[in-house]
Amino acid sequence: MSIKFRATRIGILSSPNLGKWYAKMVPIGTITSEQLAEEVSHMSTVTRADMLAVLWSLAEVIRRHLLNSEIVHVDGLGSFRVGFRSRAKDRAEDVSADDIYGLRVVMTPERKFQQTGVTERNGRTGYFTGELIRGAELSSVNAPTIKQTYR
């Protein structure tokens, strides 16, 4: 398993990087709730139908809490919250719900700190790793020999 990428040229005329290249993830498919339920059912004692019911119920419960202005944290997955854009006003009392637009769900993946050492002042050194992509390998669809593994 590896995450596929390809070199893609930047074509945005206003970009200072116009004409340069960057790596872009290449999806190879989409996994449905039914497929997830099937896989989980083979890894546990839960049936596919039970798993589908749990996934549907989980989505409904998360939605209810988001609509109640709460952050929802799912261990091993991350946190969900509502985000939006708002028009700026000169005075606080002029800000209203009419100024809010672009509502969206913001998902922050769960991360764990991987300590690599200690500083002279007993601070930690290291890096954060996203739990959902821990152990990921990357491979180019243009040149399959280019690989990088993240811990």
Rank of each mutant, 00 (worst) to 15 (best):
L13S: 13
L13W: 11
S14R: 01
S14A: 07
S15M: 02
S15D: 09
N17E: 10
L18W: 11
L18A: 10
L18R: 12
G19C: 01
K20A: 05
K20D: 06
W21V: 03
W21T: 02
Y22H: 12
M25T: 15
M25I: 15
V26N: 06
V26H: 06
I31Q: 04
I31K: 09
I31D: 02
T32F: 01
T32G: 03
Q35Y: 08
Q35V: 08
L36G: 06
E38Y: 09
E39W: 04
S41Q: 02
S41W: 03
S41D: 04
V46D: 04
T47I: 01
R48P: 02
R48H: 10
R48Y: 03
A49M: 15
A49S: 15
A49C: 11
D50N: 11
D50I: 04
D50H: 08
M51L: 08
A53H: 08
A53E: 09
V54H: 03
W56E: 15
S57D: 12
S57A: 15
L58P: 00
A59D: 13
E60I: 10
V61E: 09
R63L: 08
R64H: 13
R64G: 07
H65F: 10
H65E: 10
L66S: 04
L67D: 01
N68S: 14
S69Y: 08
S69R: 11
E70R: 05
E70V: 00
I71L: 09
I71A: 12
I71S: 13
V72A: 00
H73T: 15
D75V: 15
G76S: 00
G76Q: 01
G76H: 00
L77K: 04
L77S: 06
L77I: 12
L77C: 09
S79K: 02
S79H: 00
S79F: 00
F80K: 03
F80G: 03
R81P: 07
R81M: 15
R81T: 14
V82W: 00
V82H: 03
V82L: 13
G83N: 10
G83P: 05
R85F: 12
S86G: 11
K89M: 11
K89Q: 13
K89I: 05
D90K: 14
R91E: 14
A92T: 11
A92R: 15
A92K: 11
D94S: 12
V95D: 08
V95H: 10
S96Q: 07
S96V: 04
D99E: 04
D99C: 05
Y101W: 15
Y101M: 12
G102D: 12
G102H: 07
G102S: 08
L103Y: 13
L103V: 14
V105L: 01
V105P: 04
V105C: 01
V106T: 02
V106C: 00
M107N: 06
M107H: 13
T108E: 02
T108I: 05
P109Q: 10
K112S: 09
K112T: 13
K112R: 14
Q114N: 08
Q114P: 00
Q114W: 07
Q115A: 08
T116E: 01
G117N: 00
T119G: 03
T119D: 04
E120N: 10
N122G: 01
N122D: 14
G123C: 06
G123M: 10
T125E: 07
T125M: 09
G126N: 06
Y127S: 05
Y127D: 02
F128I: 09
T129M: 14
T129R: 15
T129K: 11
E131W: 02
